[in-house]
Nucleic acid binder design. Sequence first.
DNA 1: AACTCGGGGGA
DNA 2: TCCCCAGAGTT
Length: 364
Amino acid sequence: MVPSLLPFTLLTFTPMNFTDELVQWYLQNKRDLPWRNTTDAYVIWLSEIILQQTRVEQGLPYFYRFVEKYPDVSSFAAAAEDEVLKLWQGLGYYSRGRNMLKTARLVQEQYHGKFPQSYDELIKLKGIGEYTAAAIASFSANEAKAVVDGNVYRVLARYFGIDEPINSTGGKKTFQTLANNLLNKKNPALHNQAMMEFGAMLCKPKNPACGICPVHTGCAAFLSNATTFLPVKLKTVKVRERFFNYFLVTNDDAVLMNKRGDKDIWANMYDLPLVETDSLLPLNELPGLPRVQEIFGPGLTISSDAVPVQKHILTHQRLYIRLIKTTPKPVKLEENWFYSTIENLQNLALPKAVFILIKNIFNL
DNA sequence: AACTCGGGGGA
DNA sequence: TCCCCAGAGTT
């Protein structure tokens, strides 16, 4: 079909299909984001990992910092884990940072520092799942793989009126298949960007801008006034409550710190000596705990000016945290405890909650 | 298939 | 408060 030979009127009244409309909308409304100006798979990888479950505005400053500090795979591969986690501090989901280091080192070794561009190679790497593999492959090499992120789920669920839960096994398959079928094989990168940007900017979770939507006349959710109910998501599990009693132990110009293990939250990051309880104990009951006596011996006195309990909300946990100032030193130091100078604290990756807890005390 | 892993922003 | 964010790994 040669468009220029078609009668003008026919062209004019030939409706664009759904995805063409979104691409058209995208070209006129897209944000200027730094990772859209490159096809460097390494840089795109950086951006995609940072943006997992993270808003663009929140991830942007981290993206700039990582690109500057690690401009290529080899510089990233040469980093220490503590350094990466420190740079990641405050962004959350810290396994992303740890997995990035593993992947950077593997790419450096096995791919001689050249970041893979094909979906099949990418999907093997730590921290890269279906979405991220499709994103890197399409954006760096225009490979025909459809991305399905939170935005795409929402756009497809609404436009096609799909009420299958997006976080069920069947639902994921349904939406991935639909996205694959819709994909513009001629320009996968542009198509993928358009789908996501449209979901992020116009077809928003709350108060979508249906009034200015280019495809609302074909949107099942709009036509049945059901945008509020789509997409459907299965209920998440309950939130666990935890009570953290941190102990502030100083020694001249040093403070006793702990390096966390790799199982719980904040893996491999740093906090203070911790005694966790299953309820919020009154301060004066703490010295009676076996665990506390094990650490401090008998006769622990607790200063009355303990920092009040602070509440920290995580996805699956509500943390009640307080900082306790003690007089006696611990009778024994545990495996992962060490004294850090105040100066050195700025080199340690601290969870946000811990950072807040001690920043005023040490002027961090 | 369910659970775990952060932190922030909007309504 | 609740929900969501350019999801992935583990159990």
